[in-house]
Computed example of a mutant assay.
Amino acid sequence: MLLVLLFSWSCTGNNGAGGNAETDFFPLKEFMEVQAEKITGMTLFKEVKVNGEKESNTFVPEYEGWLKELEFFIQADINRPALAQAYETQRSERFLIHELKEGEKGKIKKIIVEYLKGEVKQISFQSKTENPFYTSQTRGVVGIHGVTKLIDNFAIETVQEVIFSKPNKIVISAHLRN
């Protein structure tokens, strides 16, 4: 089921736009790729609930495995030339918020980067995909350890609704240890 979810996410992700337009958006994809390198060798404790049925797993992913585990966050990156004008950005000492402008099209509705003393503390996103037959809403949050500056935990919640079917609710929660 999780593979189906990841596959459907990746099929709706990249719009294929090319170019070198600059944006002021947080580099989420690059941030996750660097983190994946740094956390390679750490143990992942992961719990997946699909419609209330729980499955737990503990393992040590290699770099490519970490990229798969963090795929939701990588796919939430909005640094694409086609989206350069689609988001409003608010900045403060503690937050960087990118929110989809009203009337703009994009599945990523909001990204919030929280800082503590100038360092990334937490990143969250909200996405929504819908058409007359299907709706999918996803929220994700990743916490960064204050001392190591590495991913400490993450959670993803997705609700998928297909017309004439019961909604599917998937909740992934994970934490890392050396």
Rank of each mutant, 00 (worst) to 15 (best):
H145Y: 08
I172S: 00
F125R: 00
K105V: 10
E99D: 01
F164W: 13
Q160L: 14
E64W: 10
V162K: 15
F73Y: 09
M32G: 01
V48L: 13
Q75S: 12
E22D: 09
K121E: 08
M42Q: 13
F31C: 00
N168R: 11
S8M: 06
G140R: 06
L28H: 01
E62G: 13
T23C: 05
A21K: 15
I112Q: 11
I151L: 09
E30K: 12
E88T: 09
S124F: 04
G41Q: 07
L83K: 10
S8Y: 07
M1C: 10
T135H: 03
G146M: 05
G13K: 12
E69R: 04
E104K: 12
E64R: 11
F26D: 02
S92C: 01
N20G: 11
E71H: 09
S10T: 14
G18S: 10
E93F: 05
I108M: 09
S165F: 15
I172N: 00
V162P: 00
N153C: 08
V48D: 03
S127Q: 04
K107W: 14
F154W: 09
L28G: 01
D152I: 06
L44G: 02
R177M: 11
N51W: 06
E64F: 11
E157S: 05
F31P: 00
Q160M: 12
R177Q: 15
I39L: 08
K101I: 06
R91T: 09
K54Q: 12
K121N: 06
V162R: 14
V60D: 07
K169I: 14
L83F: 13
D24Q: 13
F164H: 06
D77F: 06
R139W: 11
N153S: 12
L150T: 07
I156G: 02
Q90P: 02
P61S: 03
K105Q: 07
T158I: 08
E93H: 04
T158N: 12
K169W: 05
T23N: 07
Y63G: 01
V142F: 01
V162S: 11
K54N: 06
T58R: 12
G13H: 13
K49I: 06
E104C: 08
Q122C: 07
G118P: 05
G41S: 07
T43K: 15
E33H: 01
V4S: 13
V171Q: 11
E130V: 07
L150S: 04
I78C: 04
F154Y: 14
Q122G: 02
K110T: 11
W9K: 13
Q126G: 02
K105T: 10
S56A: 07
S124L: 04
I112N: 04
L5I: 14
L70V: 07
W66T: 02
E30Y: 09
E53I: 13
K54S: 12
P81F: 06
W66P: 00
G146Y: 05
T148F: 06
K68R: 09
E53Y: 08
V4Y: 13
D24H: 13
G19F: 09
L150A: 03
R177Y: 12
T12C: 10
K101Q: 06
A84K: 15
K46Y: 01
